[in-house]
Design a protein around this nucleic acid. Structure first.
Lengths: 355, 355
DNA sequence: CTGAAAGCGCTTACAG
DNA sequence: CTGAAAGCGCTTACAG
């Protein structure tokens, strides 16, 4: 290799010429678009086009550039690209949790769909707290996402306002409201509570009760449940409220507590299938037949739940459909569509015949 | 507000002066660091320091800048920041899937840990294909992540090489190898197969069999299982291989197929708890007592699995620990540590006494 | 503790 | 179909 030319040596530049000072920021640099351009004998803009608009490049040039890219192992820097084009190709998804939850299914298909459309997903886990969600939003917005998926509709006013000001498409999911920030793909937790109450009433339940988590959506189901029962004259609904995350063990512990206080409970609506399975186990241990002595209804329709526990009634919600629809809603808007999606995916109450 | 000064009006600049041409790239611009700087009466560099190195700013200046940031709702642009500093504050996680899987737990805690340390997680879902993983790597590297979490140890040579060349810390998870790309936090699937074989042998099983998914890690468990049995003189291990993703329904369908071909099977090692629960259901339907007539072992120790199916033996792996350890391994290296983590988190075979 | 200048690696908006 | 110039919004590396 040739040695450095004298003019590149700052030490001889004693008169303070106009030559810009060499600044070595960080260590050895990776490949840049100019390296590819030089090797392929084209300008950097052409290399850029090969990645972003190949149709506008002559087939022969395209092929030549691609071979150099391949040979060198060049990967474009999207931090630079995003900054320059104001298109980050990033979509943010803010979800309470993806562990042991139905959200994981939604995020899975959401991410697959976005990926196919050329976007990547920045995953932000909010836990179940409001304040956390807002500071998370700042972090997320600093990446300049082109769209945002939110879980639920209970956001602080300031979050709603800021998101509106940013002007990017937003889709709220897994809940229902007449006044979404922008778009919505979800279902009504309140109506689920109503439906389960009606199911219990139709079965002739005299003393329905509730084992519920304390998060907003579980509490919405609780409201629907209690209000529908109140309409039917059933007022004192016994309940045990448990902190998220719910688990089989929590449900197992909750049922005895419930029956201890209110022994004649004959139907219990659990906040999730995990809680319901726990309650089922406890009922079995206590010698209570399900569903004749005690009806148990869960929420979530986990694959295994209805499989292992045919006595269980549960509410099925389609997390996959939510993920796909939310992705499409955002993609359509990114493609210039004016319509704002508003989708109620509904739910269904599943009861096994084999019970 | 004052009106624009004449010199700002391009329409009067008819002689082609040295004034740079105004380029309106994209629509109305958001807030920039210079807007905050102007309002706070400091230079942009000081605003930058308020975010990145607050200790180096005078308390009074700090407070003033923060108030302007708050008032304006300024959110720094990390695309620009990352480009300039060569620090993206992004960690990539490449996982086959997060739906219905143990990986979701790993990603959950990994993401939480990274988030606490000031990094965000770019989630990339590879499905179960090798080629997909490699093109995904390009996409991911274009964001210039500072670290990468990989699932498994079976990667193409070119992926391994490229990742090494990039020079960022990499942690492989959920499997074991003597030659990781960089760091490893996992356990040996082969040894799990060995352990289950030994458990079956100890129970006096004469005709152990296998219901397994066809992914690399499931096949490694299969190898350990078959080789350990071969050592004990058990050669013809019947098996049904199913395509991922595995589900309860798949397991339910697989068992009859297995017993059809080999009626005297008395122990079956299933690739996952979902498969095992399905097999359990099928066994019940066929009137086979578990575990006396047919022992069933799963994999994954899902909360509900052992809860709803006490007859089930399963292998417990600690996905949470993997997530935390993997995050720590990367963070330590990002903090300048030289040590490369190599952690075998092990596993345990869980058998319920109540069986 | 604070700032002026230069540059990070791309893409836009023209012009040809 | 292709390219020269300018700029995206930050931060580095000095210097004071």
């Amino acid at each position: 290799m040739p040695t450095a030319k004298p003019t590149d040596d700052a030490s001889i530049d004693l008169q303070g010429s106009a030559t810009p000072v060499r600044r070595t920021r960080g260590g050895p640099k990776g490949l840049r678009i100019t390296d590819v351009a030089a090797q392929a004998g084209v300008s950097p803009i052409t290399v850029s086009r090969v990645f972003n608009n190949p149709a506008s490049v002559a087939p022969e040039t395209l092929e030549r550039v691609r071979q150099v890219v391949q040979k060198l192992g060049y990967v474009p820097n999207r931090l630079a690209g995003g900054l320059s084009s104001a298109r980050s190709r990033l979509i943010a998804a803010i979800v309470p949790t993806i562990a042991h939850s139905l959200f994981s299914e939604t995020i899975q298909v959401f991410s697959e769909t976005m990926s196919r459309a050329g976007y990547e997903v920045l995953l932000a886990l909010s836990g179940y707290s409001d304040t956390n969600e807002e500071s998370l939003l700042d972090t997320v917005l600093s990446r300049r996402p082109e769209g945002v998926l939110l879980t639920g509709v209970a956001h602080t006013d300031s979050l709603r306002e800021r998101l509106r000001n940013v002007g990017i498409p937003v889709v709220e999911t897994w809940d229902m409201t007449a006044t979404p920030i922008d778009m919505l793909v979800g279902f009504s937790h309140y109506q689920i509570g109503v439906a389960v109450a009606e199911r219990f009433l139709a079965r002739g339940a005299k003393r329905p009760a509730l084992i519920s988590a304390s998060d907003v959506r579980a509490l919405a189901r609780r409201s629907g449940f209690r209000e529908r029962l109140a309409q039917a004259g059933v007022m004192n609904v016994a309940e045990v409220i448990v902190a998220p995350p719910s688990s089989v063990a929590t449900g197992k512990a909750a049922l005895p507590r419930l029956l201890d206080e209110t022994p004649d409970v004959d139907a219990v609506f659990c906040g999730s299938d995990l809680l319901a399975i726990g309650a089922l186990g406890a009922a079995k241990a206590m010698g209570l037949d399900v569903p004749s002595r005690l009806a148990v209804c869960g929420f979530g329709d986990l694959d295994f739940a209805t499989e292992t526990s045919p006595q269980l009634t549960t509410v099925r919600v389609d997390g996959t459909r939510i993920g796909v629809s939310a992705a499409r809603a955002l993609l359509d808007r990114l493609d210039g569509a004016r319509e704002r999606a508003f989708v109620d995916v509904g739910f269904s109450v599943v009861e096994r015949e084999s019970a």
